[in-house]
Amino acid sequence: MHPEHPVQPIAFTHTVHLAKRMQCTTCHVGVSQGPDAQIPNVTFCMGCHMVIDTNNPEIKKIAAYQARGEDIPWVRVYNYSPSAHVRFNHAPHIRAGVACSTCHGDMTKQTTAERKVNLNMGFCVECHKQKRVSVDCDTCHF
């Protein structure tokens, strides 16, 4: 199991970034287009942090990763076990108006991401039933 509060290599401050009026989709570009939200890589971070707040020790850490030719080894917060045989697609959920915070919590108040809900089948089915979405097995399992 993942820790519910995974320790990330960089103490990325969602709070700060969102306060600067960035959108979730600025970095997680895939979220409205396809299955995965996408975690930005070190080059993307350094696109801004080449000039912004370069003295911050966390940002120095990012710069060091880049200098070594390495990406930031983010720790996954949510993941499905392969034995669940489940396919989750972000995009239709976003289109259906499910707020990111439903599963990921209110990021304007959080630093790093945490597990907000227990993503078991009951959680999914409950919401699908509530919103009158199909709960046929092959909606998610294939």
């Binding site: 078991n120 089948m121 009951g122 959680f123 089915v125 709960v135």
Partner: peptide
């Protein structure tokens, strides 16, 4: 044990 009918979150 899935042969046993028991209430579960999966429904």
């Amino acid at each position: 044990y899935w042969l046993i009918p028991y209430p579960n979150q999966r429904g």
